[in-house]
Design a protein around this nucleic acid. Structure first.
Lengths: 191, 191
DNA sequence: TGTACATCAGTGAACGCGCGTTCACTGATGTAC
DNA sequence: TGTACATCAGTGAACGCGCGTTCACTGATGTAC
């Protein structure tokens, strides 16, 4: 049942995208390769034709997830005034829609504490993604020296990621909503 | 080998405290009961004399971890002026010492994304701990209406927890240090 | 362009392993008289 | 207070299960002539 080169590449990509979603949805160690491959419409045995190990897939899936989320953020501010861009970044990130859909949202928030324990390639990918996120946020600041903008952006990103994680932990939906709302309002004032 | 009531209670407490540390250090699903019991100086078979299931221990361990960290925070601001109290909260939480010792640090930061997927009793414990953390932070704000103080505290806690999680993910120690520093400086200005 | 053979994507069974959990057993503690 | 018995904390072997990984096999694709 050999597949054409193109079909093979498509299969590989589909595994990476499925993993990017499932890892964010259920956590990395909570997602089994069998389930993952089934979700991608395959049987588990074929996994090792595409990846050396689960860890290799984890790294690629994180890279892919970060890339798609960061590209979408960058696109959303493209051509907007700094003020509008800041507003857009905050109001798109800090929403209940984002909170309720970790599978397609920010991997730093979805996998936060898992990433600390991930292997080095995954952590490198996460680190690079984090730095790019700070850059995107910093680029919308005007009237600051580069270092100042970077410092401010660092704190803003911390609050964005932190509030998303906390809003997902909390059991009371009103409290959860208020975490996003208050953090957004606070950052809108001080961004 | 029956133990006295007091010895039994001490064993139970030692399991909870060991779990509180190991879960924060390694993650919940990454910590096996066998290893855990061995760390507590016991064999795994005795576990079910003390707990109905791993999930029950998880909930108790989270409660214990939150209690000890929140009590320490409250103690640290006891009797201090609001300004000094704010400074103390931020400078104690946002340190490399805290970052490098997740086993004894804030469970919300250590277990962040794990908690979202934990069972309901654990999430309730985490939620209660979160609310208490916000209260502690809000209590140091003067010159604000209660709702305003709560809103501000919400955003500040998001930034505190978020920066701790991010500082632990990032591979470059300079970047990691700067996350804590910039967030602390930003919050010192706007707390 | 057509034929013969090598390659390899995907299947599904099987591997060893560690997990959470159960259990028969031991012997010190707690209890009833 | 002393004795006889029931309780139960802790041990260590065993349970079924799902994990990541391996492998023999199939048959369509790619390649060499």
């Amino acid at each position: 049942m050999r597949k054409s080169k193109q079909a093979t590449a498509e299969t590989r990509e589909s595994i990476v995208h499925t993993a990017a979603a499932e890892f964010r949805r259920n956590g990395i160690s909570e997602t089994g390769l069998s389930d993952l491959m089934a979700t991608a419409g395959l049987t588990h045995g074929g996994f090792y034709r595409h990846f050396e190990s689960k860890d290799h897939l984890v790294a690629e899936a994180c890279e892919a997830a970060l890339l798609s989320v960061l590209n979408a953020m960058q696109d959303s501010v493209e051509g907007a005034s700094p003020e509008l861009a800041r507003k857009r970044l905050l109001t798109r990130y800090l929403t209940s829609k984002h909170r309720d859909n970790p599978a397609t949202g920010c991997p730093l928030a979805a996998l936060g504490s898992d990433l600390r324990r991930a292997d080095s390639r995954t952590r490198e990918a996460a680190s690079a993604g984090y730095r790019r996120l700070v850059e995107i946020v910093a680029a919308q600041l005007d009237g600051f020296l580069p270092d100042e903008a970077n410092a401010r952006a660092t704190a803003i990103v911390s609050a964005m990621v932190g509030s998303m994680i906390l809003s997902r932990i909390v059991t009371d939906s009103k409290v959860s909503d208020s975490i996003l709302r208050e953090t957004r309002d606070f950052l809108l004032q001080h961004y």
